[in-house]
Amino acid sequence: MARLRRMPRQLHAASGRPRRSYDQYCATARALDAVGDRWTLLIARELLAGPRRYTDLHADLPGVSTDMLASRLKDMEREGVAERRRLPAPAAATVYALTDRGRALLPVLDALAAWGGPALTDPGPTDAVRAHWFALPLRRLLGALPTGGATGLVDVRVDEGEFHVRVGALPVDECHEPYGDGPAPGGADTRLALSTTVCAALARGDLSLAEAVRRGEVRVHGTGEVAVLLGASTGPSGHRPG
């Protein structure tokens, strides 16, 4: 049997690959060389919501040490996945943002969220929760509606707070993030309100969005195409008339 040749570790820098490379001539291995380290994809999840300051990233990644976060961001810059930017005055702050290569991770994170959804059983006593962590599964469900090309901005309120998602064939670039923390800048044309428990059931696949709306567990309000498809109330509270 032929012996496999491994690239000497001292040549990794010359090859442009990280020192922890798998040393496999395989597209999957190369991808994991770039983003397979612990925390990297979760940092990308945060940056898909838009440029973030280091302190904001650290606040929304509970459990990561400051040294680890700094190291991972440096790795992501080296791999061309993220970059540092200086915001103009009056903000005058340094932020991290995804590059085009980094934003191309969206379908990867979508697939991971769909695969991991069934594991969202009851949260453990030490589990942190952020509202916008539900953006990926809910955006996928809204995008699967029989919209016929409908687009829209959707504000979503759960127990932990509010986030917004873009639905349909909207451009996903640095000016049009697929989702974000808080209400949509400039306002959304659809608003949803639901509990964290229902949101988790939707992500697990235990409950369909249509059924949750019919049962009143998802309250819909607005005039956008998504709101109309879900059967929005016209009342100010967003509750369906009954």
Results as ranks from 00 to 15, higher is better:
178 P>M: 01
135 A>I: 00
109 L>G: 05
17 R>K: 11
141 L>S: 05
60 D>H: 14
189 D>S: 11
220 V>P: 08
81 V>Q: 04
168 G>N: 01
164 H>F: 08
192 L>H: 10
236 P>Q: 03
8 P>H: 13
35 V>D: 05
193 A>F: 08
163 F>E: 00
68 M>N: 04
33 D>W: 10
131 A>I: 03
154 V>I: 07
210 A>F: 10
237 S>M: 06
10 Q>I: 07
167 V>I: 15
83 E>K: 05
11 L>F: 15
17 R>E: 07
4 L>K: 12
235 G>H: 09
202 L>E: 02
177 E>T: 06
128 A>C: 07
230 L>A: 10
123 P>A: 09
6 R>Q: 13
73 L>P: 07
122 D>P: 09
96 Y>E: 02
140 R>D: 04
79 E>K: 01
132 H>L: 01
217 E>V: 05
37 D>R: 13
158 V>A: 13
114 A>P: 00
16 G>H: 03
37 D>T: 12
120 L>P: 03
230 L>V: 13
114 A>R: 14
111 A>Q: 08
213 V>W: 11
30 R>I: 09
29 A>M: 08
152 G>D: 00
57 L>E: 01
3 R>Q: 14
210 A>G: 12
46 E>A: 13
11 L>S: 09
181 D>C: 05
20 R>W: 15
97 A>R: 04
74 K>C: 08
180 G>Q: 01
14 A>E: 09
144 A>C: 04
80 G>T: 05
204 R>S: 08
14 A>S: 09
160 E>Q: 15
147 T>I: 02
182 G>M: 03
24 Q>P: 00
58 H>Y: 12
159 D>C: 14
190 T>V: 06
196 T>G: 15
196 T>N: 10
114 A>H: 09
160 E>D: 14
87 L>P: 08
171 P>D: 03
118 P>S: 05
74 K>E: 14
223 T>A: 13
74 K>H: 14
44 A>H: 07
30 R>M: 10
110 D>N: 06
39 W>L: 07
132 H>C: 00
46 E>K: 06
105 L>E: 02
4 L>D: 08
215 R>Y: 03
135 A>R: 06
205 G>T: 01
184 A>F: 11
147 T>K: 05
221 H>C: 12
231 G>K: 01
84 R>C: 07
114 A>V: 09
112 L>W: 12
159 D>R: 14
121 T>N: 10
218 V>N: 11
21 S>V: 08
127 D>V: 09
199 C>Q: 05
137 P>Y: 11
197 T>V: 15
216 G>L: 06
220 V>D: 02
158 V>Y: 13
97 A>F: 09
203 A>F: 07
201 A>R: 15
188 A>T: 05
85 R>E: 15
188 A>M: 07
145 L>Q: 02
159 D>M: 13
185 P>F: 10
71 S>N: 11
184 A>R: 04
100 D>A: 15
98 L>W: 10
201 A>N: 09
125 P>W: 11
157 R>K: 10
15 S>L: 15
150 A>L: 11
110 D>M: 03
72 R>Q: 12
50 G>S: 04
85 R>D: 13
72 R>H: 06
89 A>N: 02
220 V>S: 05
81 V>L: 15
198 V>M: 09
32 L>I: 02
123 P>M: 05
195 S>M: 07
61 L>S: 08
93 A>S: 12
53 R>M: 11
211 E>Q: 15
105 L>C: 07
11 L>G: 05
166 R>E: 11
